[in-house]
């Protein structure tokens, strides 16, 4: 298999890299998304992620298969956490490997952009004085 998709309480950059690295791939591009400590000037205490896991896995698989089938990369790993995370902690990791770097950059960007639009995962942002579901309202 050339695709790894995973949702877990903790994810690991090295696992994604180990999965995609291969002697035929000269370029590996890695995206790591971490919890930021502020949003529009408000201090973020923590994030809580909820997911509809079987559908989220299926949508992540679709993204991964699209990059392999149409973007020219050889291997891809998409990992996302669920549950509670604090500033600095990792919530998403995407690694794409290809014979040459250009398509790996493109695939990595496509994968994170599409994940944010289609994968049923929801993020609740906790501030010192309240909490909101991110992007829920116009």
């Amino acid at each position: 298999m050339n695709v790894l998709v995973k949702i877990a309480a903790d994810i690991n950059v090295q696992e994604a890299l180990n999965f995609v690295e291969s002697p035929d791939c000269g370029g590996v591009v890695l995206f790591v998304g971490n919890v930021r400590n502020e949003t529009q000037g408000r201090k973020v205490v923590k994030l809580f992620f909820e997911c509809y896991e079987p559908m989220a896995i299926a949508e992540m698989e679709k993204i991964a298969q699209h990059t392999i089938a149409t973007m020219g990369i050889s291997r891809i790993a998409i990992l996302h956490i669920t549950g509670e995370k604090f500033p600095g902690e990792t919530v998403v990791v995407i690694a794409a490997a290809a014979p040459h770097r250009g398509v790996a950059f493109e695939a990595c960007e496509y994968a994170i952009d599409t994940l944010k639009q289609t994968v049923p995962i929801w993020k609740k942002e906790f501030f010192e004085d309240g909490a909101i579901w991110v992007a829920a309202h116009p």
């Binding site: 998304g33 994170i112 049923p120």
Partner: peptide, 8 residues
């Protein structure tokens, strides 16, 4: 029911 998603 899938409200606006916000993963990543």
């Amino acid at each position: 029911v899938i409200p606006p998603v916000s993963g990543g």
